[in-house]
Design a protein around this nucleic acid. Sequence first.
DNA 1: TGAATAGTGTCTCTAAGACATTATTAT
DNA 2: ATAATAATGTCTTAGAGACACTATTCA
Lengths: 245, 245
Amino acid sequence: MSEDAFLATYDPSAYGRLALTVDVVLLGLRDGRPAALLLKRDEPPQAGLWALPGGFVGVAETLEAAADRVLREKAGLSGLHLEQLYTFGAIDRDPRMRIVSVAYLALLPETAFAAAARNGAGLRPAVIEVPWAGEAGGPVAVRAPEDGQERGPLPLAFDHADILALAILRLRGKLDYSSVGFALLPDRFTLRQLQDVHEAILGTALNKPAFRRRMLDRGWLEPTGARAAGTSFRPPELYRFRQPR
Amino acid sequence: MSEDAFLATYDPSAYGRLALTVDVVLLGLRDGRPAALLLKRDEPPQAGLWALPGGFVGVAETLEAAADRVLREKAGLSGLHLEQLYTFGAIDRDPRMRIVSVAYLALLPETAFAAAARNGAGLRPAVIEVPWAGEAGGPVAVRAPEDGQERGPLPLAFDHADILALAILRLRGKLDYSSVGFALLPDRFTLRQLQDVHEAILGTALNKPAFRRRMLDRGWLEPTGARAAGTSFRPPELYRFRQPR
DNA sequence: TGAATAGTGTCTCTAAGACATTATTAT
DNA sequence: ATAATAATGTCTTAGAGACACTATTCA
């Protein structure tokens, strides 16, 4: 059924007045670039376009519970830390009916991100191409990773380009003064990996000594004593994130 | 009708599944302290408690339009700058039925705040007592201004103490790097007034020379050439806020 | 030893805090 | 002149950026 034919036969009033959904940005890093897990829609509306995993909020379900359920149903993940991003309420953001959506952000370390992309039913990673390096905003484009079949930017459904953009902006804003960055790393990591994460999200290079000083002075890093193996050079120290009490 | 009697006769299923509202924090300063405009509920549920102005979101109304309408209907104000704060979705935040609410923040300069308190149907200013001086959060207490009849803290309806707390936190976070602070001032103001606003919101004293340097270096302040009158000492220069292009 | 990255020492620069001093008005 | 606050000069200090240098591992 074509998009137009679908809309012609769709009866919005059959669905009541106003619906509430959650959409979850499952953000991780792929080859050192920010990426999100997206789902290809195979039903109208907007069949063939790529969308964030989402779902309706139940009457006896909190917003966080709905987001967690979506995560479980669509990515096989549960219990991730969720942060509310923003609530999108434009009248025509969904062509079926009036749907207001609360957007959430969840962060995955690189291995969990790759695993979810393999196990999640139809979830595929898409590298986010952020056209703004500074603090300005605007929608973003996404692209299938190099190893995929698709070429060119992937078409995004609804207002999901705006939601993705907001996720990046929010992350950038909190990165330096909060501990969100660690959610994108495995349990044990090197200072270089931590800096790579920050640079990937911020989209700019950072000064190494200053970065190390700042991070170590925060008191969030606990040296494990172990060092990373498998390098052909001086092995870096492994750290663990430790919540400042 | 008592609160219990009301709840006993109330049929939640008659209202459908899930409703969406907006609640607006109308924030201003009163005697140099942050204050919000509140409404005394005279119907159950929670009759007698103090609540933020709010209302249901129409099917063909954006969230911002709903917030603007609430502002117009309850405070006689329109076209104010609105900032979305957060969406509150706890199951039992309203005893009648499942109501999810999108909270908005609007800022008023001191004179407009006082005028809205006079003209708004039942809107009364309440000084916000923030128990945390740093960055920590938690609900806040409100109190009628000294000149009023009431004594002691005013009881707040629903989760509105949390909403008010979030408004303060958000404002504090944006105060130093954005131009929100100017929305709490009249068109022309002195640097001391600007500093007073910042100190009232932050809850801490600021260093005068450093504050002046920072503000002037921002390029947002345009000297008017005029000076404030009516002082018995050196009259301060009046500035105007000018959006940095 | 050479290559490669880890990790650090140090200088400079910027901006904030502290504190004192000068400026300007009304009484 | 005095009182009161505006407005600024300057010293100190904290932290970031720049850049070079040392450290450590494998091949």
